[in-house]
Amino acid sequence: MTIGLFGGSFNPPHVAHCIIAEVVRDQFELDEIWWIPNGTPPHKTDRTLASAAHRKAMVQRVTDAHAPFRLCTVEMERDGPSYTVDTLRRLQARHPQHDFHLIIGSDSLDTFASWRAPDEIVERVPLIVYKRPGGLNAVAERRFANRVRYAAAPVLELSSTEVRARRRAGRSIRFLVPDAVQQYITSHDLYAGD
């Protein structure tokens, strides 16, 4: 089975995440997309990070709505920072029968050389990169060019930060997040008092 690994804080997951995951799945003929909420993201110190339990529950609602999407809690199963290379090692050891691909945004490719063990990551899996607002870092793009494939996903200027800000301001987040995620956010009063 060919699996796309789609990691992030998903704080909260929004419709742009869903669109990217589905476009990548379709374009690269992946069997499934495994959504991997970070346990403790090493690069985020955001005090507005919802608990792992809330983020897991919201991603579960997204993945329940579309059969090729799966929730993968590998990063939430361990303590400490979540490093991609550790996640890949663990998943490849658990599932040697699967062919994994790592899905990242162009903003992540810009900083990819500073990730823990980037050369090992690209030896283990090819990267599928989708465009985010802003340009690409030409140095990073050249260094990893033989392991990068680009998704023909639309550039969507929606972020979890924007969703949280709208919620804090008492504004509507309808159509910015899946209905089930909106219901969860409302019922648990998330992000309203960040």
Rank of each mutant, 00 (worst) to 15 (best):
L109D: 01
V148Q: 07
R90N: 09
S106M: 03
N11Y: 12
R168C: 12
F100Q: 05
D194K: 10
A21P: 07
T84Y: 02
G193W: 07
V23T: 15
H14C: 09
A52F: 08
Y191N: 05
R90W: 01
D179Q: 08
G4N: 08
A152L: 10
F69A: 06
M1K: 09
R78T: 14
R166M: 03
V74C: 05
R78H: 13
V177W: 08
N38E: 00
A21I: 10
I121P: 00
G4I: 09
S172V: 05
P42I: 09
V148H: 04
P37G: 12
V74K: 02
D86W: 10
N146M: 00
P41H: 06
Y83H: 12
H43R: 13
A192W: 04
M58R: 08
A65Y: 03
P154C: 11
P37V: 08
I104A: 01
H66P: 05
F175N: 01
Y191E: 03
A52K: 15
S82D: 01
A117C: 09
S51M: 09
P41S: 04
I19F: 01
A145H: 07
T45P: 11
A152Y: 11
A151T: 13
K56A: 13
R47S: 15
T87C: 08
L136C: 11
A16W: 07
H95Y: 12
T84W: 02
T161P: 04
G8D: 05
Q92C: 13
P118N: 02
P178C: 06
R25Y: 01
P37Y: 13
F69Q: 05
P13K: 15
R25A: 04
R164S: 04
L88T: 04
T111K: 13
Q92R: 14
M76I: 14
S82I: 10
H54S: 15
P41R: 13
C72N: 12
V125M: 05
A165F: 10
S187C: 06
E120M: 07
K131S: 15
P178V: 05
W34E: 11
R89G: 09
V23G: 07
H17S: 15
D194L: 15
Y83M: 11
R90I: 07
R61C: 03
L88S: 08
